[in-house]
Amino acid sequence: MKTGAIAVEKGTPGKAPFPSSSLRKRAWKARWYYVFMIPGILYFLIFKIAPMWGVLMSFQDYQPSLGMLKSDWVGFKHFERLFQSVDFWKLFRNTFLLAFYNLAIYFPITIVLALILNEVRHETYKRFVQTLVYIPHFLSWVVVAGITYLLMGSEGLINQAGQLIGQGRIDFLYSTDWFRPIIMLQIIWKDGGWGTIILLAALAGVNMSLYEAAKIDGASRMRMMWHITLPSIRSVIIILLILRLGNFMDLGFEQIYLMLNPLNREVGEVFDTYVFRVGIQQGQFSYSAAVGLFKSVIGLVLVWLANKLAKKFGEEGIY
């Protein structure tokens, strides 16, 4: 930083390589910031922007043997196929509902969990609980699905216990009614703790003197939570919410794929599993790319809307 500042001082008065442009001047002034940004920019260029040329594939009849350059351009053929597919609305509804539940149930739960953890005053106990709730995140979905099968299969633990107390068998795994609750339970169990990390970081940054002042004024713990803690992390919650919306349609493919069977496909099939089955497994790359692009466009629109909304309510938004 210091060298930068010195260089600027030296350079500014009579240097004038770009005398006309004040933008350039300012850029030169901040050149070291730009240097520091290079790795980050490169990361996005190489890993995020560059592969985007692949979306062109969704407007082609991509044939691996011909490559991108020689494959035929077919316009919106693959999108037409998607929108005209018998399953399109089913897929859309299933994806949308699961995504909505994710947002409406899982997300608030992480906030509540973070608030509860934040209120725990015993440091060691807090750490212990935190570690416990993080652990499931590191299990793979295959393990989670395996546990679910063991618990909820027709001869699983829950059904065996149910039979002992004279309950009939519940077909959790085949039931269209149980599919979404099971998916949500899995998500909450696996990632509930993980979702609190960023919120806890934000909570740690809340100014302690505010609590002291409130205490002197006689505020109860609940009141402090409502009037100090929540407002302090409001912008973080909103940013998290907007970012989640960007991936709104990306439900965990593995999770849903593992829980899918012919009897719950009606409610369980989402775009991701559909693309895998119909697109990837069949080597129909263009069609897969088209569905992927469609999902991304929805994500983009949602982010844009949410950001606009956030700004309208006086929040910062993400851009």
């Binding site: 960023i198 970081a201 934000a202 940054g205 809340v206 100014n207 505010l210 407002p231 302090s232 992390i233 409001r234 912008s235 973080v236 940013i239 910062e316 993400i318």
Partner: peptide, 13 residues
């Protein structure tokens, strides 16, 4: 508070 909030959210980002 607002200022603080801004800082927090940037670091979080």
């Amino acid at each position: 508070l607002g200022k603080k909030r801004g800082q927090v959210s940037i670091s979080i980002l």
